[in-house]
Amino acid sequence: MAEPLILKTLTISAGVAPFVSVSLTAAPGEITTLMGPSGSGKSSILAAITGTLPDGLSATGDILLGTQNLSALPAWKRRIGILFQDDLLFPHLSVGGNLALGLAPGGTRSERRGRVEQALAEVGLEGFAARDPATLSGGQKARVALMRVLLSEPRALLLDEPFGSLDAELRSQIRSLVFNHAKARGLPTLLVTHDPQDAEAAGGPVISLR
């Protein structure tokens, strides 16, 4: 059963000077929005949760998934999925290769291929597995990136302004696609954005950073 993502006075410091601090609970199946202007430390909070804070920054406070403390785990054992503004599909792998990369090991080759095909079908990209990601449109790439992170069965989903590079029409379309999938899977989801429309569409609690 999905568990909430809880930040307890998570404080990010550059050297010894703290520059952002936040406490929140992102409930499963709900999209919690973290709002703030650029430079307010939104992305650093996400980096602390994924365990990839750059050198020079440090975090104190607790990051919990249910009752498990994530802070002690290395990044790759936390199982926190993240989507960025850019799709960041791996350019050396096919579309199917990108999806299979996140798929948990196990299962026969045809089973794994079946799950990849099924995931592609879910977002209207049947038969795209063999394609070079560089030949996809922006909307198609965004959908592949979404399915890649979902196939890895994360325990929480982080969204780092993931709709920023899309034009208005595509933006609302991809936004509701991402939100619906996250909710349907009961994932605790944390959205970082400076766009009030994103927060409104998310429909969950909104926390503002100064």
């Binding site: 980096a47 994924t50 365990g51 990839t52 290395p74 990044a75 790759w76 054992k77 936390r78 199982r79 926190i80 999925g81 993240i82 960025f84 960041l88 990369l101 996140g102 948990a104 890649r148 992170v149 890895s152 994360p154």
Partner: peptide, 8 residues
């Protein structure tokens, strides 16, 4: 970050 998130 993405790769770590995928559990690699």
């Amino acid at each position: 970050t993405i790769a770590a998130g995928l559990g690699l």
